[in-house]
Design a protein around this nucleic acid. Structure first.
Lengths: 226, 226
DNA sequence: AAATAAGATTTTGCATGCAAGATTAATATG
DNA sequence: CATATTAATCTTGCATGCAAAATCTTATTT
């Protein structure tokens, strides 16, 4: 039904994936000619893809100076975490009220998976399972716009966030917090679900400072702007 | 300091302004050649501007069929209001905690202006004053990312929202609700400010139904998607 | 007369070309 | 030798060109 995809779209998705996954580090220059050669297309679809990524905040375009993978200031990062915490909390509240029986079952299942993966102690695996857990809650809000918005922000901080779970002891803590969220959602208690999620994703002073301290300097942006 | 603006940027802003203001109605076709002629440039900067607007959600691009000013489904509109209500509430909460003395003074001043304008009973004037009131609260949150995000959503629903205040009696109600928000912020009571704002911007069943009923059919989108 | 099919026209998607601005290299100067 | 100035190279921003897809016209058939 939907018309086939345009070249620009494909390239946008590939570059975005490389940014989100961290393959392209924050601050990397993105030269149109390079990319055109890499993907075997002309500069036009590359330009168009970069323009879209710029308006989504993934790359910072400097007029007449090309684009680079966006870097965040510490302040900007805190701001994004603050907004995301609020949106995730809203998701949890709505999910508690709106999730179908089937979605609730899936939630329990995924939570068990998280627990199992946590036992292995491999941060990257937990990162993936944790991500699916949160995504299921976005979906459970039955608000697609909320889902898209939250996911977009999550993707933007993703290159940074990946490092977060390496902090010692964070993994077990995270699991306990998930537990509180799951219970509240199963009980259909929106307010409690919201507070539980807020507690889970809010940036706490010390944890955040440790996190910032662990970032490679090149990731950060000392100038103005977000 | 900042390099001069690119043609594409100027055009993007002009088209966006026309969409937000309602000069270009939802559903209008946006032909590249037309626009190129209108703005006296080649198709390239037009294409690039449209692509950016598409990723911001202002236009819906149908591959190989050009773009049109985005229309919202009723469901999509409800979803956006739901998210915006939450972000505005967060803004109010943070503003209560973070606004400077000067900002608080400005808030009181703007609130008085709203009251004065409301007396005249001209909806469009109140719309403008109300908008500035809300924008001051975004700024008062001292979270620029929140400010940008909220404003972006507000702009997207703006072509629809403009009609909302025409509902009879809405104007005085709005003013009373502002009053509660202002009081809570002045008291530095974040929780109360959040609840007051939530009450102000949340979509209530009947009001929303009246609102939807008043929309011109062409504005709405019956297909899938947001 | 309505519906369908075929052809003409328009419009997009992508490639290429070129000039202006930015970056780097080279040269001159204190 | 360091700094400043100028020249060369590279990169972007925009215009133009062309082929494929979509839309609109017209003609044909039932």
């Amino acid at each position: 039904m939907n018309a086939e995809e345009t070249l620009t779209d494909q390239i946008r998705r590939m570059i975005e994936a490389d940014i989100v996954s961290g393959a392209l580090e924050p601050g990397s220059r993105l030269e149109e000619t390079n990319l055109a050669q890499k993907y075997q297309v002309s500069r036009t679809p590359i330009r168009e893809a970069l323009l879209q990524l710029a308006s989504l905040g993934f790359v910072e375009p400097r007029p007449r100076q090309g684009a680079a993978v966006a870097r965040l200031t510490v302040a900007g990062m805190m701001q994004m975490f603050e907004v995301m915490a609020d949106l995730e909390s809203l998701s949890a509240e709505l999910a508690a009220r709106r999730m179908t029986d089937d979605e609730r079952r899936q939630l329990v299942e995924l939570h068990d998976t998280c627990r199992a993966v946590a036992k292995t102690g491999v941060p990257d695996s937990y990162y993936a399972a944790n991500k699916r857990f949160h995504e299921l809650i976005y979906t459970g809000s039955h608000n697609q716009f909320l889902e898209q918005t939250t996911r977009a922000i999550r993707n933007r901080v993703s290159p940074y966030r990946r490092l977060q779970l390496r902090v010692r002891g964070r993994l077990q803590r995270s699991l306990d917090e998930h537990d509180a969220v799951v219970q509240a959602i199963l009980d259909g208690d929106g307010d409690r679900a919201r507070r539980a999620m807020q507690g889970h994703v809010a940036i706490q002073g010390d944890v955040f400072m440790d996190f910032v301290a662990s970032l490679p300097p090149a990731f950060l942006h000392t100038g103005s702007g977000v």
